[in-house]
Write a protein that binds this DNA or RNA. Structure first.
Lengths: 192, 192
DNA sequence: AGCCCAGGTTAACGACCGCTAACGGCCCTG
DNA sequence: CAGGGCCGTTAGCGGTCGTTAACCTGGGCT
């Protein structure tokens, strides 16, 4: 046996297909029968694994947010003391994420409002902490720029990096390198 | 009487409210009764003005795409011969649009798949032509960069500029100037 | 004055959808 | 070999939603 990812559990299969379908046609636009069919079971069978359709979306969104934050914190700790390297590492990590999980990226800021109050609050809190990682390091690099401006700039760069769902017949590495340059270029223009 | 916008027709009222609601809760998440209530009539009354819910979305998306393209063409013609000025003008125009009509921006790439085949095709064609305006001028400014890369970069900058739905307690002018700098910074990094 | 039509109303239908109920087979355990 | 979860199935309920039908009304044209 290899050390690579084990066979995905049924739950994981379902989440993966649900993410794809939600991203493609929207949360309300996908029926439970359709999600079931995508994993080879039918409709109500899903309820052996999830409390309901909402629960799938909630687990997806909380999951992404947690992984983003955890990854970001790891990268900040790893390169601590060198803001330039921290920012580069955050950018690289975000690009990897955007390219690996475009469906989740799409859902992340599109279907948040479909969550129950508690879940939505949790996701927003995780998002805010992730943004704060970026804001902190960008402010170190550009101390003369106001915090509100930096925050808007960080969101804008997220928009730039998350634009990958829009096609690209260009090869993974080329897109990575391009996005990296664009993001650095945008941040570089903060002080100019 | 003034030369300013006349009192909006009922159709325009409906479109405006529908755009707001669709952006907030998604096409499938908004009922016709809700749209009707937003303009003071109720549910089925909308059918005196539109063939159906789909028709409202179609008119919204075709309308934005046409306005974007028309505005873009106008700006290209206006500054023809000076690629730098053309690009600046395209950026400024797109920023204005993003700040003035955030609801439409949101819908623009979020609910496109809910359209009928014919409408979707039309919208995509208009979008493609708008992108091409940008690609052409950016290629003039960076002749050494491949076309595919430029196209991805343009989409990425759209993502950056369209990120404005995400808050900003920063004042219109400050956001405008910031986005302008970020977009120029990103494009500037194309050659570096 | 009479009429008509634009622009509303309410009632109701049919389809769909999320979810529950009731049931069954397979595999693992004692 | 008995039994009990785990993981499916199908049937069906209840609610919602887009749309249509049928009806009403007030203002402008003839």
């Amino acid at each position: 046996m290899s050390t690579r990812a084990a066979a995905p559990t049924r739950r994981e299969q379902i989440l993966s297909e649900a993410a794809r379908l939600f991203a493609a046609r929207g949360f309300h636009g996908v029926g439970v029968d359709e999600i079931g069919a995508a994993v080879g079971i039918s409709g109500p069978g899903l309820y052996r694994h999830f409390a309901g359709k909402d629960a799938m979306l909630a687990e997806l969104l909380v999951g992404i947010s947690e992984r983003l934050l955890t990854g970001g914190r790891h990268r900040v700790a790893e390169a601590a003391g060198d803001p330039g390297r921290v920012l580069s590492s955050l950018i690289d990590g975000h690009i990897d994420f955007a390219l690996d999980d475009r469906a989740l990226i799409t859902l992340h800021d599109r279907e948040l409002d479909r969550l129950r109050e508690a879940d939505r609050k949790l996701v927003r809190q995780l998002q805010r902490q992730y943004v704060e990682l970026w804001v902190d390091v960008v402010r170190e690099l550009h101390p003369e720029v106001g915090e509100a401006e930096v925050r808007v700039a960080v969101h804008a760069v997220f928009g730039l990096l998350n634009s990958t769902p829009h096609l690209a017949a260009l090869g993974r590495e080329a897109v990575e390198s391009l996005l990296r340059r664009l993001a650095h270029g945008a941040f570089g223009a903060l002080s100019a």
